[in-house]
Design a binder for these strands. Structure first.
Lengths: 229, 229
DNA sequence: TTCGAAAAGTGTAAAATCTACATTAATAAA
DNA sequence: TTTATTAATGTAGATTTTACACTTTTCGAA
């Protein structure tokens, strides 16, 4: 019978995580050397299997934490991948999630206790299975997301310069942006607070530091807008 | 062990289809009375279980065809739903797909041999499980899609009037559009061919019929744009 | 102390796009 | 031939987007 629960096939359900980070070198992606067969030792997204009593969103969080120690990361579902032979061992459907995190905040502990590595998106090694394709889709989604939601809160340090924000957008969109136009567009979003404090690392003159106005930022997360950069 | 294939749980994987159609009454959604327990007799999206040797995309096509006879329908994956108790019988993860189809082209055969029914989106009955939530997401996705890809080829008859196209967009976006602005924006997409033929049903004067320029339409499907309606 | 180097900060004019809006045209039916 | 009905059409003003260059600040070197 077509729709009998009892005769329907059951399958393994995996979750793979595309974790984006950002630092002075640009947009990065977090990868691990796979620690079990098949493809042991090859570069891979962080992944694992869904447990029966678990929701996908939670599985993504659990799996991310188990490989990185990272907690309370906001992830979004990307897509379900189901090619028959995507996993050579056994039929496995994988649901991919992606997240944005601040590298500096998390890196020390993570590198100490686990073994993930950051790669510049452009320099990422070949990945196992269909993970390259997942990564490509995630980048596309991130670019799109950038055009309708604010980005940066999760990726930048608490205090940051306008230049850092500009470089974040440039590295996500992979194109140069006009500095003055960018600043006025970002300012028109009204999500930044200019501090009375300068960062003196980057120049003699020093550049003002900003933070996000969390409330306004979150409000913008809910209501899509068009940001034409 | 965390990532052992042999100890990982297997789950049922369902596919549910949100089928959008359009006719003179507006945007519609195709539903069936569920023909098996639980919730037998209640309104439901068209759905079924993934088979082990099947890709999700194909499962969506197979399931749609089994309930409607519809073939060669282009569907897009929407989201994977995994609430623990979303299906009361057994843990089931469902991947939702959505599609756009032309009601008039397909209706006769479908209604004859199967028992699905069209509902105006606004008048849809309460659905089983989390199908209401799937439908809401699909509508949101369709609206978004409408702002970055052309819509209509799959939903309108071969030849259609500008008014029909306008009403399609209005019913998807659920708002009134300015006729003249709409026409000039659509024309600027350069995807329509104006025919030397009028539809005399709707008025004394008659209104010109259009078709889509399939090539240009398809090209626009690939490259996103912003259509500010 | 002055000078040079390096990045920060700032404004505008022209072009493009978006919006709001009303009249005339064509035809069939009465 | 008149009337009723819907189709078709254009523009001016407002808004947004784009392209673009010079001045400011301060540290460190001469």
């Amino acid at each position: 019978m077509l729709n009998s629960y009892s005769t329907a096939d059951k399958v393994l359900l995996a979750v793979d995580c595309i974790i984006f980070g950002f630092d002075h070198e640009g947009l990065k992606i977090l990868l691990i050397k796979r620690d079990f067969e098949p493809e042991k030792g090859k570069w891979s997204l962080i992944g694992g299997f869904l447990k029966k009593e678990e929701v996908l969103d939670s599985a993504a969080l659990r799996i991310l934490e188990s490989y990185t120690g990272l907690q309370d990361i906001y992830m979004e579902q990307l897509h379900a991948y189901s090619d028959i032979d995507r996993d050579p061992v056994e039929r496995t459907i994988s649901v991919a999630y992606y997240a944005l995190i601040n590298i500096e905040n998390h890196n020390a502990e993570m590198i100490q206790n686990y073994d993930p590595q950051w790669f510049k998106v452009a320099d990422a090694p070949k990945l196992i299975f269909d993970h390259d394709s997942m990564l490509r889709h995630a980048i596309r989604r991130l670019r799109y997301r950038t055009s309708i939601k604010p980005v940066g809160f999760e990726l930048l340090p608490e205090k940051f310069t306008m230049r850092q924000l500009l470089e974040l957008y440039e590295s996500i969109l992979d194109k140069e942006l006009d500095k003055r136009n960018f600043i006025s567009k970002i300012n028109s979003l009204d999500i930044l607070v200019k501090l009375d404090e300068k960062d003196m690392q980057s120049s003699r003159k020093g550049s003002y530091l900003y933070t996000f106005d969390k409330e306004k930022y979150d409000a913008k997360l809910l209501n899509d807008f068009v940001l034409n950069l």
